[in-house]
Simulated scan of single mutants.
Amino acid sequence: MQFDSLKDFINMGGYGFYVWLSYGVTIGSLGTLIILSVRKKRTVLIEIAKKITREQRLKETRGNNRESKT
């Protein structure tokens, strides 16, 4: 191992603050992206389900209107 102790590893030769900050920003950005993507996917799936239900009701209504006219 190149570092003599855990303290040296965290310090990263005096650049530890910048190194760990960059890791933190990267992980935070990726985490935010994943959370927002999952939420958007859920919203889109709910909208699709509502649209399918609406279309089925319209088809049923049209079918009932045709039967009542004949």
Rank of each mutant, 00 (worst) to 15 (best):
L33A: 15
T61E: 13
D4Q: 12
G14D: 05
T61I: 05
F17P: 00
I48P: 02
G31E: 07
R57G: 02
I48A: 09
K50N: 10
K50P: 00
K40E: 06
R57Q: 14
D8F: 02
L6M: 09
T70R: 11
Q2A: 12
T70W: 05
S29A: 14
G63V: 03
Y23C: 14
S22Y: 04
F3H: 15
T43S: 10
I46P: 00
G31Q: 08
Q56D: 13
K41Y: 03
N64P: 00
S68T: 09
W20E: 08
W20N: 08
M12K: 13
V44C: 00
T32H: 04
T32E: 02
K7F: 07
E60I: 06
G31T: 15
F9L: 13
K7H: 08
K7M: 08
V25D: 04
G28C: 12
T32C: 13
V38F: 03
V44N: 01
Y15V: 02
I35S: 04
S68A: 06
A49L: 06
L36H: 03
T61W: 09
Q2S: 12
E60Q: 12
K41E: 06
I48W: 03
L21K: 08
T61H: 06
K41G: 01
T70F: 09
Q56F: 03
R66T: 07
R62M: 11
